[in-house]
Design a protein around this nucleic acid. Structure first.
Lengths: 199, 199
DNA sequence: GTCTATATTTCGATAGAC
DNA sequence: GTCTATCGAAATATAGAC
């Protein structure tokens, strides 16, 4: 997941640079409390210039939503067939961990602005395509053909990974990624392994 | 934790009723996108009346912050001595689970408005008391005298419980609380038990 | 305690020059 | 592609009557 194009620091599109700054500010102050003026100023130009690259403020959030979506698409590709998902869950989660770490900022931003993203989703609801990722996830977790304990542990494992990764730039700031990944994999095994689910 | 006073539905203070409605709306639309006019209308009176009970919009969020704080204070009382905390963690978490479920709405609201709460915290930072709960938590997780794998699993377990509980009104809507609690306790044991930490 | 104004501010968004 | 200037909307907060 997420090889991350990682273009040379100065060959980034203006559009991309706006999004990068937006992530920073949306983490610091939150989406709603961040004005387009602030984004523009931090980039060294004016508000109107931002409007040349994005039709609206929502449009910026939407673009970030798409970044998230693209990153998760590969890792969660298996969410199509609800039956098989439970079995694939450990692998699915495994593929997720490294992507989460590599794009930590983006996911932290999402964590801290859930309400704003949900509102965005409601707007799209009245429009086109419905490849609602979060909805699919809920569907899997609500699937009654899978034993309840398994489903609960699936939900837990997801929260556990996210929580562990979010601390990576904080309480675990000095921990090498590889080490963190190894520990997380171990924890996920205890949570989802055959031995655990057989109980 | 959280015996929850649960006053008779109609003997609630107007102030309390405002807070209840605020929780609802902050979940539905988010803190920033919710206007005081909406809160007032849903209660059947006008915006100015709300200002009689709360000095500002921030003041409403602050009151909700205190509700959260009071609920967590008991459960996380052990966070005082950083050394002993790692040992007590399983018990600490155990005490948390039921409180989280009993006051799910409040915690969901917090989850979806993290940015707003953080901003609130920054303001208090320039003022009085510093019994910063979230800060203490970070301190414990950063404590280098505790083995890294243990700390990571502590962070994971917290995220796991929260994630599991949040789904309670959603994908696990039809699951009895007692059953959910039992499964969560089992999962936490696998994540934090002596066998797991000895690995 | 609750109401009807109203003051004030800020922000998203647009128009049009360069 | 970026600027200055401005419009219009909405929200917080206040004043003062009842």
């Amino acid at each position: 997941m997420a090889p991350k194009p990682a273009a040379p620091p100065d060959e980034r599109t203006t559009r991309e640079r706006i999004l990068d700054i937006a992530i920073e500010l949306f983490i610091e102050k939150g989406y709603d409390k961040t004005s387009l003026r602030e984004i523009a100023e931090r980039l060294g130009f004016s508000k109107a210039a931002v409007y040349y690259h994005f039709a609206s403020k929502d449009d910026i959030l939407l673009a970030l939503h798409l970044r998230l979506h693209d990153l998760l698409r590969e890792a969660l590709a298996g969410l199509g067939e609800p039956d098989a998902t439970a079995d694939m869950w450990p692998l699915l989660l495994d593929g997720l961990i490294e992507g989460l770490i590599a794009n930590r900022q983006l996911f932290v931003m999402h964590e801290r602005n859930r309400a704003a993203f949900e509102q965005l989703h409601d707007k799209r609801h009245h429009e086109g395509d419905h490849e609602d990722l979060e909805g699919q996830l809920r569907g899997v977790l609500a699937d009654h053909t899978v034993p309840l304990p398994t489903r609960v542990r699936m939900a837990c494992s997801l929260g556990a990974v996210i929580s562990g990764v979010m601390m990576a730039g904080d309480a675990f700031a000095d921990v090498p990624s590889a080490e963190l990944v190894a520990i997380l994999r171990g924890a996920m095994n205890d949570l989802l392994g055959a031995a655990a689910l057989a109980r």
